[in-house]
Design a protein around this nucleic acid. Structure first.
Lengths: 189, 189, 189, 189
DNA sequence: CATGAATGAGCTTTCATTCAT
DNA sequence: TATGAATGAAAGCTCATTCAT
């Protein structure tokens, strides 16, 4: 077997395999053997890239967090509520484009502490709070709506994700529109 | 330990203990020993009430589903959107009143087992679709909003729940208001 | 529930139930619950008649040993080889008449020490050695045959039993004839 | 512990250890731990070679069946009854040479599992039926004796085995002679 | 580096036995 | 006496992790 040139690349391959496996059977039912088989390497070799089974889940988390951070960054210019609509569309598109990562989210939610999911949602809300603050300054916001409603916008998107995860029949990709109808158009002045 | 008279009552006690344990450490990390200790009985005695560890999770699911069904039933009379607001308030109140059951939800979402969470959300959406249909008939609905936005309303509530589960700092009990602001008032004609 | 008058009778009932259960599923797979259910009493009540699960097997052994002893006793009068033939017929008839007891024999054979199966076969051989000794005195025995062939006669019968136990298709009841052909007629002078 | 090259060899070692343990304490009382200790490996390692405890018993059965098949094959030429005598001698020699395998036989008899001991004895009888048929054609058989007496010959051997298993004092190795006296010489014309 | 045999802690589940009623 | 809920010691099996090759 040839020696590995790029440790990082192998790590990515293994992680990708792990995410596929976790998505397929759930983290709890996923064995290191499964991940190794999916990656096409030996069980022990998984440990060359990751310290433990939990480290794989942590990496999957970080991988998702990076995806999410990408989406949250650089929303362009224009009216704040337009940027909010763009944000919603992008998140939904991202989830639909990475169904395996999305599926792993339930395991991340369920996995106790050491994964700072709270921070992910805190950042998420912070971005939207900012948009709402700007929309308020632009006078674009209906009375009674303010940054404190960011949690509801996040909820609408993540709640759609959740329903899709629980019931794959639900067409996640088509849900950006309805969410925007309610959470963007519904709060417009 | 004395003889039990009521098998059903003991079953409820064990289930309640299990739900507390699952809420505290997550289902994956919960041992039958933990449940037994929490219930104050011997490990083997858990099996007098439940066939297996998985059966405990299933029972927790059913227990939650019953709670949810209660909330969905009997929304009173009055304008449909008022009933929708009531529904949202009730669900949030129910979740806040049963934080342990709520915490177990992530395990139910993550559980690969045949728990039919999908049906729970399907029923949930169906109730709201009806309310939206009635609101439409009452002429209470803004243009562009219809039964197909039920998924967003469910999402807003479940998404708040999710954020709370992931970050217990978030005051779930205070979130009914914001959700109603957006998802009820925001869709009003 | 009425109180028991006759402890011994209840003991017999339980033992009979146990023998049926052991015959049906083998001792290893037989649970105290099974025996209790078969006897129509509660699990704990089995312990009123027997000290332990092993005690049931021991009792089954003693029960069989008594059956066997009965057959060996009182073979009537007449030429020794005729009595030997009678003995063989009786043993086979006894086994065929008590298939449950017979089936339990394999568990008795397999069950290690504290059951003195060795003594049963020792007694068995002793009786036949006596018959062969008498046959010899009667001049009824072929040259080269003597009391030391008792083990073979016992073997022929028990070997038939064994084949029947392993393969219930085999008609045990019809096997006395062939055994006598070989083991009685075959050793006649 | 170093890496194993030959999986099959390790399997044989574990099986041999298992047979020794089963012979010593009986299958019912044999723990996987015991087998592992006897084999000098860790408990979990037993499962690298065998799927379950029952699989060990099945393998022991197959191992014995192979031994038995060897003995039944290739009885040489010569008069059928001489070959029958050879067969008896060989079986007894085989049993005496493999006392552990022989001891496990009672567990195989008692095992409720689908081990098809019946087939072993069926084959066994078929071989002897053939020999008796040939003896008949050779005119070597006493009147009244025929292939239907094969069961008795098998019984005589297996019955000796049984008595030895139940009472190890009995000198199995010396029993071929008496069996032949009765079951071969006794049926000769 | 890569491998996969070996390990053994840990977990679920079973069930003989006890004993309060 | 009769009951069966309660117990808890066992035991089978799994699988993350290690490490000799």
């Amino acid at each position: 077997m040839p020696k590995r040139i790029d440790h990082g690349a192998r790590r990515e391959e293994v992680l990708a395999a792990a995410v596929r496996v976790f998505a397929r059977k759930g983290f709890a039912a996923s064995r290191i053997d499964d991940v190794a088989a999916e990656a096409g390497i030996a069980k022990g070799s998984v440990y060359l890239s990751f310290d433990s089974r939990d480290a794989l889940l942590k990496a999957a988390f970080e991988s998702y967090a990076a995806l999410a951070a990408d989406v949250l960054a650089d929303l362009g210019s224009g009216p704040a509520l337009d940027r909010l609509a763009t944000l919603v569309r992008r998140i939904v598109a991202m989830l639909a484009a990475h169904p395996d990562h999305a599926r792993v989210l339930v395991d991340l939610w369920a996995s106790g502490q050491p994964l700072d999911m709270a921070a992910v949602y805190r950042d998420y809300r912070a971005v939207i709070e900012n948009l709402l603050r700007q929309a308020r300054e632009e006078g674009a916001l209906r009375a009674g709506i303010g940054p404190e409603h960011a949690v509801v916008v996040v909820a609408a998107v993540e709640g759609c994700l959740l329903q899709w995860l629980v019931d794959p029949e639900l067409p996640i990709a088509d849900l950006a529109g309805p969410v925007i109808d309610v959470c963007v158009e519904g709060i417009r002045a």
